[in-house]
């Protein structure tokens, strides 16, 4: 293992403990509560926890922010049915994301893309042991309630589906189930976190098999965080206003030198080397959408991507993973520059 990561600091080792970050979010909510008591604010944040817990408390922040931690170093795979979900599980996926159509097919089909069939999601949940995620349309509170009720482990409020609300995202604090959201830049990521997202992923450009946009978004977020570290409090304050998020959140991110939540890469990852590249750039793990089940060698490819994601810092293993697939069988892919502006998914919900 002799790969030096893209970033000069270890972005994966937090400089403060998980419990301190959780305290931070509870304290942030307390400020909001005080304002509320003066009639200035509505409840927007986590519910406070008692000092001592003598009975089990479900859906707390430790549990919502803790879930994605156990996805780190792993691969979440997009699937459309039970058979694909089982292939993913056998290959060593850490979770599956159930969709009605793979992002590539969403592009081809056009029309309105919605949440997957509830029966299919339930069927997948009863046939695999790994966590099951599903996507909802941006701002679609009810689709999210449906998924929470049937027991999906994590909800992706995703730009791959047609947005239900052009202006607002879901208030994710109201849910007991954790959410993951896409982001292209730091401001977007922090806005989603301040709305209650427990995990962030790059948007990339889904369904293209082209990793270029994911690379761009991951580098941008990393560089923006790096730049924050050298800014004085006044400038951080201005940044917070620009981003539309609490100053404390900007400050925490700067101090940590990374996002305060788990940060995955997504959007266009198609080969083991793509996955390893995103890990090298500092991603905590990867989502693979069309890349696996739109290829002609899904079984091998799924296993190879799992291998390369975990062992990204060992070039010999990445070679081994790359040998498990054939470039001739990769999904064809789409050149992003040839997409019309209205065909881009990443511009939805900023």
């Amino acid at each position: 293992m002799n790969m030096r990561p893209y970033s000069s600091t270890n972005v994966r080792l937090y400089s403060v403990g998980f419990d301190r970050i959780i305290d931070f979010f509870y304290r942030l909510a307390e400020v909001a509560d005080e304002l509320k008591s003066e009639g200035l604010w509505f409840h927007y944040g986590p519910e406070a926890l008692p000092e001592r817990l003598s009975v089990p408390h479900k859906g707390t922040l430790r549990v919502k922010y803790g879930f994605p931690i156990y996805q780190k170093g792993g691969v979440c795979m997009d699937v459309t049915n039970v058979e694909q979900a089982q292939i993913a599980e056998d290959a060593g996926a850490v979770s599956v994301m159930v969709l009605d159509k793979l992002p590539y097919d969403v592009r081809v089909a056009g029309g309105v893309a919605r949440m997957a069939d509830v029966k299919v999601i339930e069927e997948v949940m009863s046939n695999v042991t790994i966590p099951v995620m599903a996507k909802v349309r941006i701002g679609h509170y009810m689709e999210a309630k449906v998924l929470e009720t049937i027991g999906v482990d994590m909800i992706d409020e995703s730009e791959v589906l047609t947005p239900a609300d052009e202006k607002h995202h879901i208030n994710k604090w109201e849910f007991k189930v954790p959410f993951v959201n896409g982001a292209r830049e730091l401001g977007e990521a922090l806005r989603r976190i301040s709305e209650g997202a427990s995990m962030i992923r790059t948007k990339g450009e889904a369904g293209t098999g082209n990793v270029a946009e994911a690379v761009k978004h991951m580098k941008l977020i990393m560089n923006e965080i790096f730049a924050l570290r050298t800014l004085s409090p006044e400038v951080r304050m201005r940044k917070a206003r620009e981003y539309g998020v609490p100053y404390e959140l900007v400050d925490l991110t700067a101090r940590l030198g990374r996002l305060p939540v788990v940060n995955f890469a997504a959007g266009g990852i198609a080969t083991p080397a793509d996955a390893a590249l995103m890990m090298w750039l500092g991603a905590d793990g990867v989502f693979v959408g069309s890349g696996i089940f739109k290829s002609k060698d899904p079984r091998n490819r799924a296993e190879a991507i799992v291998l390369a994601t975990s062992m990204w810092d060992d070039p010999e293993t990445v070679v081994e993973a790359q040998k498990m697939i054939s470039e001739a069988k990769s999904m064809m892919g789409i050149d992003i520059r040839r997409l019309k502006p209205e065909e881009l998914l990443q511009v939805r919900g900023v």
């Binding site: 408390h57 879930f67 966590p131 027991g151």
Partner: peptide, 26 residues
């Protein structure tokens, strides 16, 4: 599933009186 994940203060006699916060995720 994840919706049943929880936290609770555990009594672990080996560690003494002070309860230990147990975080149970799936």
């Amino acid at each position: 599933r994840q919706r049943d994940s929880f936290e609770i203060d555990l009594s672990i006699p080996t560690l003494g009186e002070e309860p230990f916060r147990g975080v149970f995720i799936r």
